[in-house]
């Protein structure tokens, strides 16, 4: 497989203009949220944050191809996937603010908590796909991970398990060029991560991850295949992390500005804008409205996040088990009574 085989969207429109406009709106909104989140972190109003800028098409294009019943097992950068699948923006922000509700999607949203260790969520997705198959339900699982995760054992073990068991599952790799500082060429010797599927007897697809229509179509095909008993697919969306790994990282220490400039020209939002212009569906009036609306939604989510009541210290001890063991109840009592007496909870 070579770079030439990367799938891009076809000339003839396979998604409606309405859908393309919706894709644009979502990408624009998530970019605003992302930039505001980085700014909030700099102001000390948000914890360490993992920015997604540059990956909007890969995330939104793929998430839009899912059905409401499908399970999503994300990594820590999939804020746009989470939002499209039904997670409110406020809760996405709460998560990065270290708040309990941030891990909780609303009832009926099949979104697993963010996975911070690398690749550990991949076998979980296989487990959910197995359960759906056991139950005979029309439901698939999709797991999101990065290029770095494809070096982890859990990725390979889950790929093998899912292929052997013919599970209804999509492995969605956002190859954003870097695992913190390690470039993809040092992560793997193969040209395309999708080639790894071959070792497991699975179909591997590489798609232009900055082309929202191409991502959507590739994902829609893989979802349909999984749902109809065709087994798992590995999709590699080739994209670029415009920002640093997290707000605790500085990408300028390990990559050239010229490379970043090159990818700026391939900006997924600009690409969608061009596609809309070709269809005559990008008016100044429309886009002004879209941007105003996004600004309002994002601002409201931030204000909502900031108006949450403070955490209570006793919450720290909850939900280790369903029923609190006696020893933990004793520790909780001791810690709270030390706190009440004005001693440091740090002991």
């Amino acid at each position: 497989m070579s770079v030439d085989s990367i799938r891009v969207s076809q000339k003839e429109p396979q998604v409606s203009t309405d859908m393309l406009q919706r894709m644009y709106e979502l990408m624009w909104m998530m970019r605003q949220l992302d930039r505001r989140a980085v700014a909030l972190q700099r102001q000390g109003r948000l914890g360490t944050y993992a920015p997604l800028e540059g990956q909007e098409a890969a995330q939104i294009g793929s998430a839009l191809a899912l059905r409401v019943q499908d399970f999503v097992f994300p990594s820590y950068r999939e804020h746009a996937v989470a939002y499209v699948h039904g997670m409110p923006l406020k809760r996405i922000l709460l998560y990065w603010n270290g708040r309990y509700d941030g891990a909780m999607p609303p009832e009926g949203v099949n979104l697993f908590p963010v996975s911070v260790p690398i690749a550990t969520q991949i076998p979980h997705a296989a487990g959910a796909a197995l359960a759906a198959k056991l139950r005979g339900l029309d439901q698939i699982a999709v797991t999101y991970f990065g290029d770095g995760a494809t070096s982890e054992g859990d990725f390979h073990e889950a790929m093998n398990f899912a292929a052997v068991m013919e599970l209804p599952l999509v492995f969605f790799c956002q190859n954003n060029g870097y695992a913190i500082s390690l470039p993809s060429r040092k992560q793997t010797k193969v040209q395309r991560i999708a080639e790894k599927a071959t070792a497991y007897g699975m179909e591997g697809v590489t798609v232009d991850g900055n082309d929202v229509i191409a991502v959507y179509l590739a994902m829609r095909e893989a979802v349909a295949k999984a749902a109809s008993g065709g087994g798992p697919t590995l999709i590699e969306a080739v994209t670029y992390r415009m920002g640093s790994h997290t707000t605790a990282d500085d990408a300028s220490r390990y990559r050239d500005a010229s490379e970043v400039e090159m990818w700026k020209a391939r900006d997924p939002i600009l690409r969608a804008e061009n596609a809309l212009r070709e269809r005559g569906a990008f008016s100044e009036e429309w886009v002004t409205q879209v941007r105003k609306h996004a600004e309002e939604i994002v601002t409201e989510a931030i204000l909502d996040m900031q108006s949450e009541p403070p955490v209570t210290l006793d919450q720290l001890f909850d939900h280790v088990y369903r029923d609190m063991p006696k020893e933990l109840a004793i520790q909780k009592q001791e810690a709270l009574s030390r706190q009440a007496k004005g001693e440091s909870v740090r002991g």
Partner: peptide, 19 residues
């Protein structure tokens, strides 16, 4: 397949699902 992390990891996913 012979992979302990997958055996437990898959079981975790199925348990979270409700099995």
């Amino acid at each position: 397949p012979l992979a302990e992390s997958a055996i437990v990891g898959v079981a975790i996913g199925a348990a979270a699902y409700g099995l």
